[in-house]
Simulated assay, not measured.
Amino acid sequence: MNLQLLKELHRHIDVSCVRAENTMDEIRQMILNAKQYQFICAFSMPCFTPYLADALKSEPHIHTGGVVGFPSGADTTLSKVQQSTQLLEAGCQELDMVMAVGALKSKDYQYVEQDIAQVVQTAKKVPVKVIIETAYLNDSELETACKIVSEAGAAFVKSGTGWANIPVSADTIRKMRTAADAHVKIKAAGGIRTLDHILEMQEAGCDRFGIGVQTAVRIMAEAEMRLGSLERV
């Protein structure tokens, strides 16, 4: 058991309200939860991002995250660059962009790399996490996607948007960790429901976990109980 991870778990969790149906009331609740647990980053859909950034500006340890090309990744590169610019101007300190999944599957690798690289260049020092939607990729496509993300200069390769109905697995994380360059971190997202799932993926090489805020709060309660029982031994 990784006691250090349990103690610092909140600093490895990005919380989100990025479903189409999420409301302003849910965004407000996420902000309260983010402040309570000091999660490392919080995400909303772009229409709520200026509000989210303003609410978190007094919390230096909680980043505001923005989603780009979300959830399909099929926006034009110009659109993704414009979205990135707007989100950065709104106060975002991290960007999670969706790769052009269909272009990758069509083997238009140059387009995919340039699409990512232009967002990375727009973001400058703000870290970009590239969502490759592993649920839709075979092993060869997954490997290629991770290599392209690495070449394009992104900070993270991320497993999914969470909109696919296939939970991310530790095996997928291992494949991503093997394929990506060593300096590129791994973020898991999609179907993360338990502390044990997180611990398994951390063992496989995962650095960050994207979780819906209600589930994240439940996992934090589970972690606190687990940590308490271990410290009493």
Rank of each mutant, 00 (worst) to 15 (best):
M1F: 10
N2D: 15
L6V: 06
L6R: 03
H10I: 07
V18C: 01
V18I: 13
R19E: 10
N22W: 05
N22H: 12
T23Y: 05
D25I: 11
I27W: 08
R28E: 08
M30V: 07
N33V: 13
K35G: 05
Q36I: 10
Y37C: 04
Q38N: 14
Q38I: 09
C41P: 06
A42H: 12
F48H: 15
Y51E: 14
Y51H: 03
D54S: 13
A55T: 06
K57Y: 12
S58M: 09
S58N: 08
H61C: 05
I62R: 06
H63M: 15
H63G: 14
T64H: 06
G65L: 06
G66K: 01
V67Y: 12
F70P: 02
G73S: 09
G73V: 03
D75M: 06
D75P: 02
T76E: 01
Q83T: 00
T85I: 03
C92V: 04
V98T: 14
A100Q: 04
V101R: 05
G102I: 03
K105F: 04
K105R: 08
S106T: 11
D108I: 02
V112L: 03
D115I: 02
I116D: 04
Q118Y: 02
A123L: 01
A123C: 03
K125C: 00
V126Y: 11
K129R: 07
K129I: 09
E133Q: 12
T134D: 08
L142F: 01
C146W: 07
I148L: 14
A155R: 08
S159M: 12
G160H: 05
V168K: 01
S169E: 13
T172R: 09
R174S: 13
R174Y: 15
T178F: 13
A179D: 09
A180M: 06
A182I: 10
R193Q: 03
T194K: 08
L195W: 01
I198T: 04
I198P: 01
E200Y: 13
M201F: 10
F209E: 00
G212M: 12
T215E: 11
V217T: 12
R218G: 06
M220Y: 09
A221N: 14
E222N: 08
R226L: 13
S229E: 13
